[in-house]
Measured scan of single mutants.
Amino acid sequence: MEVRTIKVFTTVDNINLHTQVVDMSMTYGQQFGPTYLDGADVTKIKPHNSHEGKTFYVLPNDDTLRVEAFEYYHTTDPSFLGRYMSALNHTKKWKYPQVNGLTSIKWADNNCYLATALLTLQQIELKFNPPALQDAYYRARAGEAANFCALILAYCNKTVGELGDVRETMSYLFQHANLDSCKRVLNVVCKTCGQQQTTLKGVEAVMYMGTLSYEQFKKGVQIPCTCGKQATKYLVQQESPFVMMSAPPAQYELKHGTFTCASEYTGNYQCGHYKHITSKETLYCIDGALLTKSSEYKGPITDVFYKENSYTTTIK
């Protein structure tokens, strides 16, 4: 009895394709271990004539594949690729409408935090270190965002349907971005203890939790000093293409032309909904596939993004 075979390709990165001759009487799992086709788990399936010449994702289970996976995804987590594939199996079914010149995501599976993050990423200057993220990001900007969303979920250790947080998501993504040249110098002034300067680099240099107003941050924000008295913390120097200011959701007025974009969060910790506000020729609110415009805006804002380049204080 002759062994019926077909020729397929296996890959971990969709760049390096490895030619395989597979036995049609055995499952993919018996031949390769966990195997995925377009995100779908085909591990328990036997090869079919229609699979001839198709590319299958496999887990990096030998040295060659491990090197290829690390170079593309910059992670050695053995569960990463499987999590990416199972997320992709959902995100490829989502709709990605162009809204006001940006790629958004039609609401499904509690994905409003991903839509808000995706919209924000198209408006701030950011370059990702893992080629996987950078490639998928370019495709997302062009309207094909399924891979990018699935990668975000995998890097953030999230599953489809789980509630997510924009600030946490951005923080994970910033860790995989090139923020080497970003720098922030802060000064804390206390009447009792004097003053202390701190220099922050990388992710810490672009994120701040405690106030939404970048102007206020430049002037000074009140913080408790270690001595128990009130101290003032203010920005001395900022070198970065953008800054992200966050605070627990509270009524906040966004003035046209003073910011790049913002995240609105309605609801409580267990259950809520994100919308995205962007400042173009007027203010726009993007909620999944829905767009509304207004000249002014007041609502429960939790993150505001500002364009920056270089700032030095005039406070002496």
Rank of each mutant, 00 (worst) to 15 (best):
T27G: 07
T11Q: 07
E162P: 06
L118Q: 03
G202Y: 04
A177G: 04
W94V: 07
C225F: 02
K183L: 10
L254D: 04
T314H: 15
V236C: 07
I15C: 10
K92D: 02
A87Y: 05
N187T: 11
V304F: 04
Q270D: 15
K44V: 14
E204N: 11
C190W: 02
N147D: 14
W94F: 04
E2H: 07
I152N: 03
K201C: 09
H273C: 02
V304T: 00
N147M: 10
D77N: 06
G82S: 14
M245E: 00
C190M: 03
G39F: 10
K7H: 13
F80W: 03
F217W: 06
H48W: 14
L283C: 09
K93E: 11
A69H: 15
Y137M: 15
A250C: 11
E144G: 07
V8G: 04
Y137Q: 04
E264R: 00
P249L: 07
G202K: 01
T292G: 10
R184D: 02
H256G: 12
S171K: 15
D62Q: 09
K127E: 14
Y28T: 03
H273A: 04
C227P: 01
A177H: 00
S294E: 11
Y214H: 01
L121I: 10
V21Y: 09
A40E: 14
V99S: 08
V12M: 06
M85S: 04
I105V: 12
Y284V: 13
T282F: 06
L119C: 05
A177V: 09
T199V: 12
G29F: 09
K307W: 06
W94I: 05
T120D: 03
S263T: 13
Q230P: 11
L151G: 01
V221L: 13
V8P: 07
Y28F: 15
K293V: 09
F56A: 05
W94R: 06
Q196K: 14
N100W: 07
T10Y: 12
Y265W: 04
Q134Y: 09
A142H: 14
C261N: 01
T198R: 12
D303L: 01
Y72L: 08
A140E: 10
Y73E: 08
K158T: 04
R167Q: 10
A117T: 08
Q30R: 12
A250V: 13
L37Y: 13
L114G: 03
R184S: 15
N100K: 13
N309L: 01
H276Q: 02
L179I: 03
T19I: 09
T199I: 11
